[in-house]
Each structure stands twice: as C-alpha cells, then as structure tokens.
Design a protein around this nucleic acid. Sequence first.
DNA 1: GGTTATGCTGACCGCGTGGTCAAGCTTTCC
DNA 2: GGAAAGCTTGACCACGCGGTCAGCATAACC
Lengths: 215, 215
Amino acid sequence: MQQPAPGRRAQQRQQRLAQILGAAEQIFATSGFEGASMAAIAAEAGLPKANLHYYFGTKEALYAALLEDLLRLWLSATDAIRPDSEPAAALEGYIRAKMAWSRSRPHASKLFANEVLRGAPLLAAHLSGGLRALVEEKAAVLRGWMAEGRMAVVEPRHLFFAIWAMTQTYADFDTQIRLVLDVPALGDREFDDGVATVLRLVLGGCFADSARQHG
Amino acid sequence: MQQPAPGRRAQQRQQRLAQILGAAEQIFATSGFEGASMAAIAAEAGLPKANLHYYFGTKEALYAALLEDLLRLWLSATDAIRPDSEPAAALEGYIRAKMAWSRSRPHASKLFANEVLRGAPLLAAHLSGGLRALVEEKAAVLRGWMAEGRMAVVEPRHLFFAIWAMTQTYADFDTQIRLVLDVPALGDREFDDGVATVLRLVLGGCFADSARQHG
DNA sequence: GGTTATGCTGACCGCGTGGTCAAGCTTTCC
DNA sequence: GGAAAGCTTGACCACGCGGTCAGCATAACC
C-alpha cells in the first residue's frame, strides 16, 4: 500500500468529502444548523475538527454544500409528471418516489425541514427560483389534465404542498409516528400503510371514481 | 399608579410570565432550542436576561413550559370526532380547526415541529402516553364508522398523520409556500385554497362518492 | 533524490453562551 | 412604621463554540 498509485490523492479526497458530508447530514438533521457543532460532526466522521475546516472552510459552507446536493434531488423527483403521462399513474409514481425518498434519506429530509423552519435563509433564492419555476411548470401540466376532464379541478400548487407534507412527514416526524404506532422503528409495514393512505387521499381526491379500487 | 393596590404583585407576575412565554415561543420557533439564546428571548421580551432565570430557572424549563401548554391545545382539537358525529362533518370540523390553528398560532406549530425533528427528547413521554391514547380512542371511532360502511376503509392512524402533515405544513413550511406562490405572506386566499385542497383530499379519499361536490 | 504542492492536525484564540449572585428595590403584612 | 418576603438586575463566571495557524507528513513531479 506504500507505492504512490497515481490519483491516490484525488481518490482519498473524494472519500473524505463523502465521509464529512455524511456525518454532517446526520448531525445537522437532528440538531439543526445552530445546534450542530463542528466538533460533533468531526467526531461522527472520525476526523479531527481542523480537517473539516480544511475542506469546507466554514460551518455554513459545509451546510450550504449539503443543501445544494439536497435540492438537486428534490427537484428531480417530479420527472414522472409530463403532459403525455397518464394522470393517475404520474401522481402515483411521484408519491411513491417521494415516499421512497423519505425512507431512504430521512436525514436529508429533516435537514431540509430544519432549514425551511428557520425561514430558509440559505435556500430562499433557490425556492423562489428553481423550485417555483418547476412547480409552475408541473402545475401547468396538471391544469392541462383538468381542462381535458382527466382529473378533478384542484389548485395544483396546493396539491403539491399536500403531497410534500404527507410524504415528508414519514421522515421528518418519524419520532411522533413511531411513538403513536408504538413500534421501535418505521419499517415495511408502516411505509406500506403510509403509501396506501397517501395514494387513497390523493387519487380519491383527484380521480373520485377510481378511488374505491385502492382500498 | 403608586398606591399599593392589592394583588398588584400577582397581576404583574402573570403579565411577566405571559411576556416571557410569548417572546420565547417566537424565538424558539424560528431558531430551535439550541439556536435560541436566552439573551435573544430577553431582548424580545424587553426584560433583562436574569429576570427570565428568576421566573423559569433554566432555558430548558422555559422551553418545557411552552411545550406543556402547547400539547394541551394539540390534544383538545379532536373534540369534534365522537361516535355520534356525522363522519364527514366531524373530519371537516377537525381539519378546519387544525388549519385555523396553523394560521393563528404558527409559532406554536413550528415549536412543536422543531421538537419532534430533534427526536422529541422532552415530549417522548407525552407522545407515547396521552397522544397515543387519544389517537387510539379516535381511531376506534373511525373504525366504527368504517364497519358501518359510513366511510372508506383506511388505516385511521395514518389518516391522522396525513391530516396533521397537510394542515401543519401551512405553519411550519410557510416560508416555502410563500416563496413558491410568490406572495409576501400567507393570507385569506392561501388558507382558503389550502382548506379546500385538504378537504377535497380527505373527504374524497374517505367518502369517494361525495367528493365531487367539494370542487 | 530533491523539490514543490497539497493534506493534515494539535494547540490555541476571542467570543457568546447559560447560569449565578449579591445588592438594592418594592410590595405586603402586622 | 418597620420587618419580612418577593422581585429586579448589572456584573460576573466557566465553558464550549467556530475558526486559525504554524509545523509537519505525504504524495506528485522532474
């Protein structure tokens, strides 16, 4: 392991970055920006604190890097909603994707929640820029379907708010759900029930006739 | 104002307590427990920092006092759901109440969200105690209605999770909603649209046939 | 092998934090 | 009026924070 394999430096750099980002996501998610300490993140990553500063400069820059990655994921989830999609299938796909995301990346979801709760100081520009444009675009698709009578008339943007809220609650509020359901952790059963419930509400609300098939 | 009116002390005490609790709710809601500083709360309340410590002892005790009040409100909102209620009307009433609460007490809702996001260290006992019992009780009412064929069969507890998520998002995520809708603040219009959307989804999902009347 | 650029980190710093307290002030009670 | 009880607050403290940096280790390049 001593020979200077070419690119060893770059490779280790990537590993360290991932190590730090992973630890930071977890700590920031459960403690919030202010509550998290660089020392705690360093401990979680198994690195000296000064090393984090070497790679990211400041705590805020590290936090911002996480949010950047995060938002890219967030925005890409709506891909299934396109004018040529079948409306119910498109919404179902979107809900399933969001729900899967809540399950696989709960820390990321909590991080996002924390940031928005704080008033989104670092995300405001993205929210009123990229996200607004995306929502506007997808809302137009839904309005098209409504005009064609292929789905019920709802304010499309509020429909998105509802879907976001219901799906992300399984990540953000997992503690509450866990305690109310009296289970040690959310597993297959809880997520299946969650998906079924969200699908029923959304499909029932947007495609009243077909709703009864989803019980 | 100099004469020693009887009870002047107790009266001023109440005023001070309210003053502190109000300021604390606001600061804790937007900064989280760790992010909030006693100095910031004191400044918001217009009192010296040492005064807060005189009344509440520690930061955590002040925070806990807020959560205590909060949970009492939270639990009382389900009153409308009783076995002898008309199912759709009961759910509609509950949703409207929750939505009104999001509008009138957004700080309280955010405070709650912050606490649950952190893993609910101070609320865990209440969540798995009083709240779980309440949900179990109301879930039983819903199951009764389902058995009688008066509403669709859904997992009642997950239905509650969905309703909580959709209604509270108008308080907790108001920043995001505001930026996406491109309005300076959430007003009548936005809350009316929100109520309409949530009602459509829940009533459409639980009472499929009558859903179309709510567009 | 030698030189340079990059990576790494222990020790340190100034600052804001939650919390304390002695001293003074005001209301209450007799 | 006077003593006791409760209230107020400026000054202070130890501590943990984000951030810095000098000095050393290692990989890259010729």
